[in-house]
Amino acid sequence: MKAVLCKAFGPAETLVLEEIASPEAKKNEILLDVHAAGVNFPDTLIIEGKYQFKPPFPFSPGGEAAGVVSAVGEKVSHLKVGDRVMALTGWGSFAEQVAVPGYNVMPIPSSMDFASAAAFGMTYGTSMHALKQRANLQPGETLLVLGASGGVGLAAVEIGKAMGAKVIAAASSAEKLEVAKAAGADELINYSESNLKDEVKRLTGGQGADVIYDPVGGDLFDMAIRSIAWNGRLLVVGFASGRIPELPVNLTLLKGAAVVGVFWGAFAQRQPQDNAANFQQLFAWHAEGKLKPLVSQTFPLAQAADAINMLGQRKAVGKVVVTVR
Protein backbone atom coordinates (compact mmCIF):
# COMPACT_ATOMS: atom_id res chain seq x y z
CA MET A 1 0.00 0.00 0.00
CA LYS A 2 1.01 3.65 -0.40
CA ALA A 3 1.64 5.70 2.73
CA VAL A 4 2.96 9.16 3.59
CA LEU A 5 5.86 8.58 6.00
CA CYS A 6 7.61 10.68 8.62
CA LYS A 7 11.11 9.20 9.02
CA ALA A 8 12.60 11.95 11.21
CA PHE A 9 11.09 14.93 13.00
CA GLY A 10 10.98 17.97 10.78
CA PRO A 11 8.77 20.18 8.58
CA ALA A 12 6.08 18.77 6.30
CA GLU A 13 8.40 19.03 3.29
CA THR A 14 10.45 16.11 4.70
CA LEU A 15 7.52 13.67 4.45
CA VAL A 16 7.80 11.01 1.73
CA LEU A 17 5.25 8.88 -0.14
CA GLU A 18 6.34 5.25 -0.27
CA GLU A 19 5.05 1.75 -0.91
CA ILE A 20 5.02 -0.29 2.33
CA ALA A 21 3.44 -3.52 3.62
CA SER A 22 -0.21 -3.31 4.67
CA PRO A 23 -0.86 -3.56 8.41
CA GLU A 24 -2.69 -6.52 9.92
CA ALA A 25 -5.61 -6.12 12.32
CA LYS A 26 -4.97 -7.47 15.83
CA LYS A 27 -7.72 -9.20 17.82
CA ASN A 28 -9.17 -5.89 19.08
CA GLU A 29 -8.70 -3.98 15.80
CA ILE A 30 -10.25 -3.51 12.39
CA LEU A 31 -8.41 -2.89 9.13
CA LEU A 32 -9.70 0.21 7.38
CA ASP A 33 -9.52 0.92 3.66
CA VAL A 34 -9.02 4.68 3.93
CA HIS A 35 -11.06 6.82 1.54
CA ALA A 36 -10.41 10.21 3.17
CA ALA A 37 -8.36 11.51 6.10
CA GLY A 38 -8.97 14.68 8.07
CA VAL A 39 -6.11 17.10 8.67
CA ASN A 40 -5.93 18.52 12.21
CA PHE A 41 -3.63 20.83 14.14
CA PRO A 42 -1.94 17.91 15.98
CA ASP A 43 -0.68 16.70 12.58
CA THR A 44 1.46 19.85 12.34
CA LEU A 45 2.97 19.09 15.76
CA ILE A 46 3.44 15.31 15.64
CA ILE A 47 5.75 15.43 12.59
CA GLU A 48 8.04 17.89 14.42
CA GLY A 49 8.11 15.98 17.71
CA LYS A 50 6.11 18.67 19.50
CA TYR A 51 2.98 16.65 20.35
CA GLN A 52 2.23 14.85 23.63
CA PHE A 53 3.06 11.46 22.12
CA LYS A 54 5.84 10.52 19.71
CA PRO A 55 5.18 7.47 17.49
CA PRO A 56 8.14 5.26 16.54
CA PHE A 57 9.69 5.95 13.13
CA PRO A 58 8.65 5.60 10.41
CA PHE A 59 5.03 6.59 10.91
CA SER A 60 2.24 8.20 8.90
CA PRO A 61 0.58 11.30 10.31
CA GLY A 62 -3.19 11.65 10.17
CA GLY A 63 -5.30 11.30 13.30
CA GLU A 64 -8.70 10.55 11.78
CA ALA A 65 -10.05 8.76 8.74
CA ALA A 66 -13.20 7.58 7.02
CA GLY A 67 -13.54 4.56 4.81
CA VAL A 68 -14.67 0.93 4.59
CA VAL A 69 -13.88 -1.91 6.99
CA SER A 70 -11.85 -4.59 5.16
CA ALA A 71 -11.03 -6.95 8.06
CA VAL A 72 -12.28 -7.40 11.61
CA GLY A 73 -10.38 -8.78 14.62
CA GLU A 74 -12.06 -11.58 16.57
CA LYS A 75 -12.69 -9.42 19.64
CA VAL A 76 -14.55 -6.68 17.69
CA SER A 77 -18.29 -7.35 17.68
CA HIS A 78 -19.97 -4.08 16.64
CA LEU A 79 -18.45 -3.88 13.14
CA LYS A 80 -18.31 -6.08 10.06
CA VAL A 81 -16.48 -6.11 6.74
CA GLY A 82 -18.04 -3.57 4.36
CA ASP A 83 -19.21 -1.12 7.03
CA ARG A 84 -18.78 2.59 6.21
CA VAL A 85 -17.06 4.10 9.25
CA MET A 86 -15.12 6.97 10.75
CA ALA A 87 -12.07 6.23 12.90
CA LEU A 88 -9.89 8.06 15.41
CA THR A 89 -6.39 6.75 14.71
CA GLY A 90 -3.99 9.08 16.54
CA TRP A 91 -1.67 8.69 13.56
CA GLY A 92 -1.49 6.50 10.47
CA SER A 93 -4.42 7.83 8.42
CA PHE A 94 -2.36 9.30 5.57
CA ALA A 95 -2.14 5.84 4.01
CA GLU A 96 -4.28 3.50 1.93
CA GLN A 97 -4.93 1.27 4.96
CA VAL A 98 -4.69 1.64 8.73
CA ALA A 99 -5.35 -0.74 11.65
CA VAL A 100 -7.52 0.84 14.35
CA PRO A 101 -8.77 -0.35 17.76
CA GLY A 102 -12.45 -1.21 17.45
CA TYR A 103 -13.47 1.17 20.24
CA ASN A 104 -12.18 4.09 18.16
CA VAL A 105 -14.34 3.21 15.12
CA MET A 106 -17.94 4.26 14.57
CA PRO A 107 -20.39 3.59 11.69
CA ILE A 108 -21.42 6.71 9.78
CA PRO A 109 -24.90 7.59 8.52
CA SER A 110 -25.69 6.67 4.91
CA SER A 111 -26.29 10.37 4.23
CA MET A 112 -22.67 11.30 5.06
CA ASP A 113 -19.96 11.11 2.39
CA PHE A 114 -16.40 10.07 3.26
CA ALA A 115 -14.88 13.56 3.02
CA SER A 116 -17.50 14.95 5.43
CA ALA A 117 -17.02 11.97 7.75
CA ALA A 118 -13.25 12.49 7.76
CA ALA A 119 -13.87 16.13 8.70
CA PHE A 120 -16.44 15.31 11.38
CA GLY A 121 -15.16 13.05 14.14
CA MET A 122 -12.40 15.00 15.84
CA THR A 123 -13.76 18.53 15.44
CA TYR A 124 -17.41 17.85 16.26
CA GLY A 125 -16.50 15.25 18.89
CA THR A 126 -14.21 17.76 20.63
CA SER A 127 -16.66 20.64 20.46
CA MET A 128 -19.65 18.59 21.60
CA HIS A 129 -17.75 17.22 24.59
CA ALA A 130 -16.47 20.71 25.41
CA LEU A 131 -19.85 22.42 25.30
CA LYS A 132 -21.92 19.61 26.83
CA GLN A 133 -19.85 17.78 29.44
CA ARG A 134 -17.26 20.46 30.26
CA ALA A 135 -19.20 23.74 29.96
CA ASN A 136 -22.77 22.51 30.52
CA LEU A 137 -23.87 25.17 28.03
CA GLN A 138 -27.49 26.17 28.58
CA PRO A 139 -30.10 27.63 26.17
CA GLY A 140 -30.00 31.42 26.26
CA GLU A 141 -26.39 31.65 27.46
CA THR A 142 -23.77 33.56 25.49
CA LEU A 143 -21.00 31.51 23.88
CA LEU A 144 -17.82 33.22 22.63
CA VAL A 145 -15.87 31.13 20.11
CA LEU A 146 -12.26 32.10 19.36
CA GLY A 147 -10.71 30.94 16.09
CA ALA A 148 -14.29 30.60 14.90
CA SER A 149 -13.53 29.74 11.26
CA GLY A 150 -11.18 26.84 12.00
CA GLY A 151 -12.21 23.20 12.22
CA VAL A 152 -13.10 22.97 15.92
CA GLY A 153 -14.21 26.62 16.10
CA LEU A 154 -16.71 26.29 13.28
CA ALA A 155 -18.07 23.09 14.84
CA ALA A 156 -18.46 24.95 18.15
CA VAL A 157 -20.44 27.71 16.43
CA GLU A 158 -22.86 25.20 14.89
CA ILE A 159 -23.23 23.10 18.05
CA GLY A 160 -23.67 26.19 20.21
CA LYS A 161 -26.54 27.31 18.01
CA ALA A 162 -28.08 23.83 18.06
CA MET A 163 -27.92 23.92 21.88
CA GLY A 164 -29.79 27.24 21.96
CA ALA A 165 -26.98 29.65 22.81
CA LYS A 166 -26.31 33.14 21.51
CA VAL A 167 -23.01 32.74 19.65
CA ILE A 168 -20.34 35.41 19.26
CA ALA A 169 -17.75 34.35 16.67
CA ALA A 170 -14.26 35.86 16.88
CA ALA A 171 -11.63 35.50 14.14
CA SER A 172 -8.72 37.36 12.57
CA SER A 173 -10.26 38.51 9.26
CA ALA A 174 -13.52 39.57 7.66
CA GLU A 175 -13.32 36.59 5.28
CA LYS A 176 -13.10 34.14 8.17
CA LEU A 177 -15.96 35.84 9.99
CA GLU A 178 -18.20 35.49 6.94
CA VAL A 179 -17.70 31.72 7.19
CA ALA A 180 -18.69 31.79 10.87
CA LYS A 181 -21.71 33.96 10.06
CA ALA A 182 -22.83 31.42 7.44
CA ALA A 183 -22.57 28.72 10.12
CA GLY A 184 -25.05 30.64 12.28
CA ALA A 185 -23.05 33.05 14.45
CA ASP A 186 -25.18 35.86 15.89
CA GLU A 187 -22.40 38.43 16.41
CA LEU A 188 -18.91 38.83 14.94
CA ILE A 189 -15.62 40.19 16.33
CA ASN A 190 -12.54 40.80 14.17
CA TYR A 191 -9.79 40.69 16.79
CA SER A 192 -7.12 41.90 14.37
CA GLU A 193 -8.96 45.24 14.16
CA SER A 194 -10.61 45.67 17.58
CA ASN A 195 -10.07 44.86 21.24
CA LEU A 196 -11.62 41.47 22.07
CA LYS A 197 -12.44 42.34 25.68
CA ASP A 198 -14.10 45.66 24.78
CA GLU A 199 -16.16 44.11 21.98
CA VAL A 200 -17.40 41.24 24.15
CA LYS A 201 -18.46 43.67 26.86
CA ARG A 202 -20.23 45.84 24.27
CA LEU A 203 -22.09 42.90 22.73
CA THR A 204 -23.18 41.50 26.11
CA GLY A 205 -24.28 44.73 27.76
CA GLY A 206 -21.27 44.60 30.06
CA GLN A 207 -22.05 41.10 31.34
CA GLY A 208 -19.35 39.16 29.50
CA ALA A 209 -19.57 35.72 27.90
CA ASP A 210 -20.99 32.79 29.88
CA VAL A 211 -18.87 30.23 28.02
CA ILE A 212 -15.63 30.91 26.10
CA TYR A 213 -14.33 28.29 23.66
CA ASP A 214 -10.58 28.79 23.16
CA PRO A 215 -8.55 26.67 20.73
CA VAL A 216 -6.05 29.52 20.23
CA GLY A 217 -4.41 30.38 23.58
CA GLY A 218 -1.74 33.07 23.77
CA ASP A 219 -2.79 36.73 23.89
CA LEU A 220 -6.41 35.92 23.07
CA PHE A 221 -6.71 33.78 26.22
CA ASP A 222 -5.34 36.70 28.25
CA MET A 223 -8.08 38.98 26.88
CA ALA A 224 -10.83 36.34 26.96
CA ILE A 225 -10.49 35.55 30.67
CA ARG A 226 -10.98 39.27 31.32
CA SER A 227 -14.24 39.27 29.34
CA ILE A 228 -15.89 36.32 31.09
CA ALA A 229 -19.24 36.59 32.87
CA TRP A 230 -19.97 35.83 36.50
CA ASN A 231 -20.06 32.01 36.85
CA GLY A 232 -18.46 31.80 33.39
CA ARG A 233 -16.56 28.80 32.02
CA LEU A 234 -13.47 29.17 29.83
CA LEU A 235 -12.73 26.03 27.81
CA VAL A 236 -9.05 25.30 27.16
CA VAL A 237 -9.15 23.43 23.83
CA GLY A 238 -5.72 24.09 22.32
CA PHE A 239 -2.91 26.51 21.61
CA ALA A 240 -2.92 27.24 17.87
CA SER A 241 -1.19 30.57 18.54
CA GLY A 242 1.89 28.66 19.67
CA ARG A 243 1.98 30.15 23.20
CA ILE A 244 0.55 28.37 26.23
CA PRO A 245 -0.81 31.20 28.40
CA GLU A 246 -0.27 31.64 32.13
CA LEU A 247 -3.30 32.46 34.27
CA PRO A 248 -3.45 35.04 37.08
CA VAL A 249 -5.81 32.95 39.21
CA ASN A 250 -7.26 35.99 40.98
CA LEU A 251 -9.26 36.60 37.79
CA THR A 252 -11.18 33.36 38.35
CA LEU A 253 -11.87 34.37 41.96
CA LEU A 254 -13.25 37.79 41.01
CA LYS A 255 -15.70 36.32 38.50
CA GLY A 256 -16.51 33.06 40.29
CA ALA A 257 -15.32 31.58 36.99
CA ALA A 258 -13.88 28.21 35.99
CA VAL A 259 -11.08 27.41 33.55
CA VAL A 260 -11.83 23.92 32.24
CA GLY A 261 -9.58 21.58 30.26
CA VAL A 262 -10.94 19.72 27.22
CA PHE A 263 -9.30 16.43 26.14
CA TRP A 264 -11.79 14.65 23.91
CA GLY A 265 -9.54 11.69 23.05
CA ALA A 266 -9.21 10.68 26.71
CA PHE A 267 -12.92 11.30 27.31
CA ALA A 268 -13.87 9.03 24.39
CA GLN A 269 -11.79 6.20 25.89
CA ARG A 270 -12.79 6.73 29.54
CA GLN A 271 -16.50 7.43 28.92
CA PRO A 272 -17.34 5.57 25.70
CA GLN A 273 -21.10 5.47 26.37
CA ASP A 274 -21.24 9.25 26.88
CA ASN A 275 -19.19 9.76 23.73
CA ALA A 276 -21.52 7.46 21.77
CA ALA A 277 -24.53 9.43 23.04
CA ASN A 278 -22.84 12.65 21.93
CA PHE A 279 -22.43 11.27 18.42
CA GLN A 280 -26.02 10.05 18.26
CA GLN A 281 -27.05 13.66 18.89
CA LEU A 282 -24.49 15.01 16.42
CA PHE A 283 -25.65 12.61 13.68
CA ALA A 284 -29.27 13.61 14.36
CA TRP A 285 -28.39 17.31 14.04
CA HIS A 286 -26.47 16.53 10.83
CA ALA A 287 -29.52 14.77 9.39
CA GLU A 288 -31.64 17.82 10.30
CA GLY A 289 -29.21 20.10 8.44
CA LYS A 290 -28.05 21.90 11.60
CA LEU A 291 -24.45 20.70 11.19
CA LYS A 292 -22.75 21.11 7.82
CA PRO A 293 -19.05 20.19 7.90
CA LEU A 294 -17.16 22.68 5.75
CA VAL A 295 -14.45 20.93 3.74
CA SER A 296 -12.78 23.95 2.19
CA GLN A 297 -10.06 22.09 0.32
CA THR A 298 -9.01 18.53 -0.52
CA PHE A 299 -5.53 17.29 -1.40
CA PRO A 300 -4.48 13.93 -2.91
CA LEU A 301 -2.30 11.66 -0.76
CA ALA A 302 0.86 12.74 -2.63
CA GLN A 303 0.22 16.34 -1.53
CA ALA A 304 -0.39 15.63 2.17
CA ALA A 305 2.52 17.93 3.09
CA ASP A 306 0.72 20.85 1.43
CA ALA A 307 -2.41 20.04 3.42
CA ILE A 308 -0.46 20.03 6.71
CA ASN A 309 1.28 23.30 5.83
CA MET A 310 -2.05 24.96 5.09
CA LEU A 311 -3.10 24.25 8.66
CA GLY A 312 0.27 25.09 10.20
CA GLN A 313 0.29 28.47 8.46
CA ARG A 314 -3.27 29.12 9.72
CA LYS A 315 -4.60 29.57 6.19
CA ALA A 316 -7.29 26.92 6.50
CA VAL A 317 -10.98 27.72 6.78
CA GLY A 318 -13.14 24.87 8.06
CA LYS A 319 -11.53 21.49 7.45
CA VAL A 320 -8.84 20.34 5.03
CA VAL A 321 -9.09 16.69 3.90
CA VAL A 322 -6.63 14.32 2.22
CA THR A 323 -8.42 12.08 -0.30
CA VAL A 324 -6.92 8.61 -0.54
CA ARG A 325 -9.39 6.71 -2.77
Rank of each mutant, 00 (worst) to 15 (best):
K2I: 10
K2H: 10
V4K: 00
K7S: 14
K7A: 10
F9V: 02
E13W: 02
E18P: 05
I20N: 01
A21L: 12
S22L: 12
K26P: 01
E29P: 02
E29H: 04
L31G: 11
A36N: 06
E48R: 13
E48M: 13
F53Y: 13
K54F: 00
F57D: 05
A65R: 00
V72N: 02
L79A: 01
V81I: 13
G90T: 02
G92P: 01
E96P: 07
Q97R: 11
V100C: 06
G102S: 10
M106G: 04
S110A: 14
F114D: 04
S116C: 05
F120I: 11
T126G: 11
L131S: 13
R134W: 05
A135F: 08
L144Q: 03
L146H: 13
G151Q: 06
E158V: 07
M163L: 15
K166S: 09
V167R: 00
A169F: 05
A170W: 00
A174E: 15
E175I: 12
V179S: 11
K181I: 15
K181T: 14
A182T: 14
A185R: 04
S192W: 05
E193T: 15
K197C: 13
D198S: 14
E199T: 11
E199G: 12
E199W: 05
V200S: 08
K201S: 13
T204L: 10
V211N: 07
V216K: 05
G218F: 09
L220S: 12
A229Y: 07
R233Q: 10
V236E: 09
A240W: 01
A240I: 08
I244Y: 03
L251R: 14
G261S: 12
V262D: 05
W264M: 15
G265E: 11
G265K: 09
A266Y: 02
R270Q: 13
Q273Y: 00
N278C: 11
Q280P: 04
A284G: 02
H286S: 09
E288R: 08
V295F: 00
S296P: 00
L301F: 03
Q303R: 10
Q303H: 06
Q313H: 13
K315R: 14
G318D: 09
V321L: 12
T323G: 03
